[in-house]
Design a protein around this nucleic acid. Structure first.
Length: 742
DNA sequence: CTAACAGCAACC
DNA sequence: GTTGCTGTTAGG
């Protein structure tokens, strides 16, 4: 007699635990962990979908047991590592089992409600329906010199392997007519294949991966130092060097007969990069990102599952594909915000990647141009292995100059441009070079400071800058909820000069056009560059046309082909220095450091600020990058922020205001009681955090700090075992070290 | 004595 | 979520 332990596809956390069902003999051969089944549940015998996590010989509920009614999948749709990850996610993020499972199964067709036949038991077996369609695939027949440059490109591409029409167009643009011409000439031929499981095959002639001297140096170090079970962090600024290094590591992984996963931020997957990967890995590589259609994701899912795809490259969506023999995970640009999930559960890709690597016994390589504070800390404590390049390969970078806007005002200049900036800008214009101006002003809440002495009001308990809410004209701490009325008098110098600061990009753009009417001023922000096509178009324009001034938000950090830069200036850094969360210094440092690092050593660089002594400004003009990290470690240690202590954020949701308030307080006391019994965990009073857009739910938050996540995990286990979470009507979620607690 | 109804635990 | 059990109570 065999029994299956299953989780139900439903949204009630009170029944979100495994239930045992008897496996009918006719199903015994197919019921294994990872298949979905149909069950009847409760007194009403409601028909529900379930997911098998375990098969066993005995059950603790022999008198209550029911039989499985139907089988949805002929074979498991998840690997055992993925199932383990699902369970781990549920316990870590306090999410529903199916919320976590959804990430892994979204490419698979979901059966909403099963039709269960009473007469014919065999009808109960519902096959897993693949998508059926065919696609045209192009193959190179022979190579000849052709006149058209597009045709030439197509031939070059097809030399590496066969491609679908869609792939060719994605890489080269709308080239349908050129393809047709080549087909007519007989240089290429087309054939049809089933897309559901089809792969673009053909002759594969992967190119040899040749590392630069610098890349070789890194690769040697990586081979020497990396250890199983310990992630490696690579300190390397040059994205091409990093990419080549990844390719080499992947090549080595494939040679061991294992598969590899390369993760990049959402916007980091350039077409040039894809083309390069096709050249190196031929048909073993595929690209997966959030914008793929359901059908395309399904294809990738199947092809990864059967081992046809050996290298998957993509954004965080790629992490949830069913790899076999996964040997290597690479995460590039570790700090990118697109690695943090917006949907429940709110996971960090790095955390999941690390867990996945552990479960699969795979290597993990992480890197970023400018490492995060947490990453540097981990390489220092040995939690991660740090890989540094030899000093001779590290490029010299420009050192920006600080312009004090306060003394500028004292000398009578109230303009957004300092005398120095004007001077530099005019010199740049006279030399017919381009000036890059960065202003990172976001549209919502800004911060408040004293125009006279630069004083910024901070939260008395949390030490982060209070954020200005124009609605109630109040200052609010986004951690603990501390709120105070905005006063216009400065507590530091007594002058009535406390003002909200807001210099937005649109405002600056108007001013610049007014001031330099016959100059070409280009604005680059989220509005002007909304899509990848916009990016390509603007990038093309940049090579064709001379721009005198390019004004942009952080958009400037995307890989635009800027040329002939005569000046790089941050118009006002202060909004980023005081952004209202503990990592605002780090974010500011990252943003501006990246901006200036892209300049050549001799490009004039300026930072305009009202706080010239701010430690982040000092770190930006320091030639020694470790200065910044030392300061941040100290600040985080004093205030108890990551990486010193972990932040754990509970959120409680419910449509009823009073219900969620009551639940929050009840839960807070339950948590507090457990926290007091031992482990070093600090817990803060619950606070209201607003209305969730869309479903109108009210959200309360409870913040907790701990040095030891394992100790915290025990607390959660204890609280869960006591039924404290199930008891609540409100939905509960856990976020660990969220990037910003806004 | 019974229909009606709210509160609540169980669902394997 | 849905169901059925339990205790309470108004109506007869």
């Amino acid at each position: 007699m065999k029994f299956a332990e299953i989780y139900l596809n439903q949204t009630n956390k009170r029944i979100d635990h495994p239930y045992d069902y008897k496996i009918p003999e006719r199903f015994e051969s197919v019921i294994v962990p990872g298949v979905r089944v149909g069950v009847t549940f409760g007194n009403g015998n409601r028909q529900l979908e379930g997911f098998v996590v375990r098969v066993k010989e005995e059950t603790a509920y022999p008198d209550k047991i029911k039989e499985l009614e139907a089988v949805i999948d002929e074979s498991p749709i998840l690997t055992k590592e993925q199932i383990a990850l699902c369970l781990w996610m549920k316990s870590t993020y306090c999410s529903l089992f199916y919320e976590g499972l959804y990430h892994f199964t979204s490419p698979v067709k979901v059966v909403k409600r099963l039709v269960i036949s009473e007469e014919d038991p065999h009808e109960n077996r519902i096959a897993f329906e693949p998508y059926e369609s065919t696609e045209k695939i192009y193959r190179l027949e022979r190579k000849e010199t052709v006149r058209g440059s597009v045709q030439k490109q197509i031939l070059e591409l097809l030399e590496t392997r066969d491609f679908t029409r869609r792939e060719i167009c994605e890489l080269l643009g709308e080239v349908g007519s050129s393809l047709r011409a080549l087909e007519k000439k007989g240089l290429v031929s087309a054939y049809e294949r089933d897309t559901s499981c089809a792969v673009t095959g053909g002759k594969v002639r992967p190119e040899e991966i040749v590392l630069s001297e610098s890349g070789n140096c890194l690769y040697r170090q990586l081979s020497e130092k990396r250890r199983k079970g310990t992630p490696s962090f690579i300190f390397e600024e040059n994205s091409e060097t990093r990419l080549m290094l990844y390719c080499k590591a992947v090549e080595e992984c494939l040679s061991r007969g294992e598969t590899a996963l390369m993760l990049f931020p959402e916007i980091g997957l350039s077409l040039e990069m894809r083309a390069l990967l096709y050249r190196y890995f031929g048909n073993a590589v595929a690209v997966c990102h959030g914008k793929l259609s359901q059908k395309e994701r399904y294809q990738i899912f199947k092809r990864v599952s059967c081992g046809e795809i050996k290298v998957l490259v993509g954004s965080r969506a790629a992490l949830f594909m069913p790899f076999r023999k996964l040997g290597l995970i690479i995460v590039d640009e570790e700090r990118d915000p697109s690695y943090y999930s917006a949907a429940m559960p709110r996971y960090n890709t790095i955390t999941i990647a690390q867990k996945y690597a552990d479960l699969s016994d795979a290597d993990l390589i992480i890197s970023d141009e400018i490492p995060s504070v947490a990453a540097v800390k981990k390489t220092e404590t040995g939690e991660w292995t740090g890989i540094h390049n030899a000093p001779c390969f590290v490029r010299k970078k420009p050192v920006p100059a600080i312009v004090d806007m306060q003394s500028e005002m004292k000398s009578g200049n109230f303009d957004f441009m300092s005398y120095r900036l004007r001077e530099c800008l005019e010199k740049t214009l006279a030399e017919k070079k381009t000036a890059l101006l960065l202003i990172n002003k976001r549209g919502y809440a800004s911060y408040v400071f004293c125009r006279s002495c630069g004083y910024v009001e901070k939260c008395p308990t949390c030490g982060v800058a209070l954020k200005y809410h124009a609605g109630g004209d109040v200052l609010k701490c986004h951690y603990c909820g501390y709120t105070k009325k905005r006063s216009t008098t400065c507590p530091e110098c007594g002058e009535k000069k406390i003002k909200a600061l807001g210099l937005g990009i649109d405002q600056v753009y108007e001013l610049l056009k007014e001031r330099y009417p016959d100059r070409h001023v280009l604005k680059l922000d989220g509005e002007t560059i909304a899509s990848y096509d916009d990016f390509k178009r603007v990038n093309h324009e940049l090579s064709e046309k001379h721009w005198d001034i390019i004004l942009g938000t952080r958009m400037l950090l995307r890989n635009f082909g800027f040329q002939n830069i005569g000046l790089a200036a941050a118009l006002l850094i202060d909004g980023d220095l005081n952004h209202g969360d503990y990592s605002s210094s780090e974010n500011a440092y990252q943003l501006y450091k990246r901006f200036f690092n892209r300049m050549t050593e001799n490009t004039p660089c300026l930072i305009q600020t009202y706080e010239p002594d701010n430690i982040t400004n000092e770190a930006l003009i320091s030639e020694n990058p470790t200065d910044f990290y030392r300061q941040e470690f100290e600040y985080r240690r004093l205030m108890g922020y990551p990486p010193e202590k972990h932040l754990v954020l509970f959120s409680l949701f419910h449509a009823d205001e009073a219900q969620v308030a009551n639940d929050s307080h009840a839960f807070f006391h339950a948590l507090k009681k457990v926290c007091e019994t031992g482990a070093a965990v600090e817990i803060y009073e619950p606070f209201l955090s607003g209305v969730i857009r869309g479903n109108g739910q009210i959200r309360w938050k409870i913040l907790l700090k701990t040095k030891d996540l394992n100790a915290f995990k025990h607390i959660i286990e204890e609280v869960t075992a006591a039924g404290e979470i199930e008891r609540l009507a409100s939905k509960v979620s856990i976020e660990i070290d969220p990037p910003a607690t806004l």
